[in-house]
Amino acid sequence: MSLELIFFLVLALASVVTAFGMLLSRNAIYSALYLVMNFITVAIFYLMLGAPFIAMAQITVYAGAIMVLFLFVIMLLGAERLPDTQVLPYQKWLARVLAFILVVETGYMLLVRGKPQGEIIPPEASANMVDSLREMGMTLFNEYLLPFEVTSVLLLVAMVGAIVLIRKDKKVG
C-alpha cells in the first residue's frame, strides 16, 4: 500500500466520521464544529488532487466565513440544545428511504458506469502551480465571464436585500 493511499484512507475515515458526527450530535455548536472539520478534510482532498486554489478557497469561504456566521447566530440565539423529541416524526423514515435510494444510485453509477469517461489528466500535469492559477483566472474572466458576472450580481442583490430588511424607516418631518 502506498503512502498516499494510507493517507487517503485515514482522511476518508475522518471525513465520514465528522459527517456522521454533524448529523448525530444533539448540540448545535458541536454539529457546526463537526461540519467545519468536514470542510477542512474536503479541502485536504482538493490539495491531494493538486488543486491548492480550490482547497484554500474552501477553507476561507466555508470554514472561515460561513461557519463562523453559523456559530455566531447559534450563540446569539442561544439555540445550542436541540429538543430530544422529533418535531416531524415522518421525517426520519423519509430520510431513510431517500438515503437508501442515494446509496443504490451511487452504487449503480460506480459499478455500471464506473469506467473513466474521457482522458483523466494526472494531478502533476494539471497542477503546474503558478501557471494553473493564471490559467484559471484567464478562463474564468474570458470564457465564463457572463456566468461569473451574473453570480456576482445575484450575490449583490442578496446583500442589498439584507440591508433593506434591517433598515429602519426614517421618521417623516
Partner: peptide, 25 residues
C-alpha cells in the same frame, strides 16, 4: 513555498477566530 501563499495566509487567518469564539461559549 506554495503558489497560493497569500490565500493560505487568508484561510488560516479566517479560521483563527474559532478558538476565541469557542472559549467565550
Amino acid at each position: 513555498d506554495i503558489n497560493v501563499g497569500v490565500l493560505y495566509l487568508m484561510s488560516i487567518a479566517s479560521i483563527a477566530v474559532y478558538g476565541i469564539v469557542l472559549a467565550g461559549w
